[in-house]
Amino acid sequence: MKNEWPLWEVFIRGQHGMSHRHVGSLHAADEESAIKNARDVYTRRNEGVSIWVVAARHIAASSPSEKGPLYEPSESKVYRHPTFFDIPDEVGAM
């Protein structure tokens, strides 16, 4: 719809988390109102201490239809997991 505000993706960093996590999306006229809307829509129950918003059009995403070529080749390459090493006892807990 022509009169629709742009879509923004919202990322919130919680009280105990180090990273911002995607929590949802919303519409807003500009980035400042997007942050305000995110505050009102996604932090009502004390969820966050920091908000990021990104205009959804700026997010480049992989295509679900390319799942095969993108991800299947790594399924058969178990040697990429670091589970084939003997860890010396002196290293202790990892």
Partner: peptide, 11 residues
């Protein structure tokens, strides 16, 4: 007019 404003005003 929009749900974001609805929630903000209710807050």
């Amino acid at each position: 007019p929009v749900i974001e404003e609805d929630i903000a005003l209710a807050n």
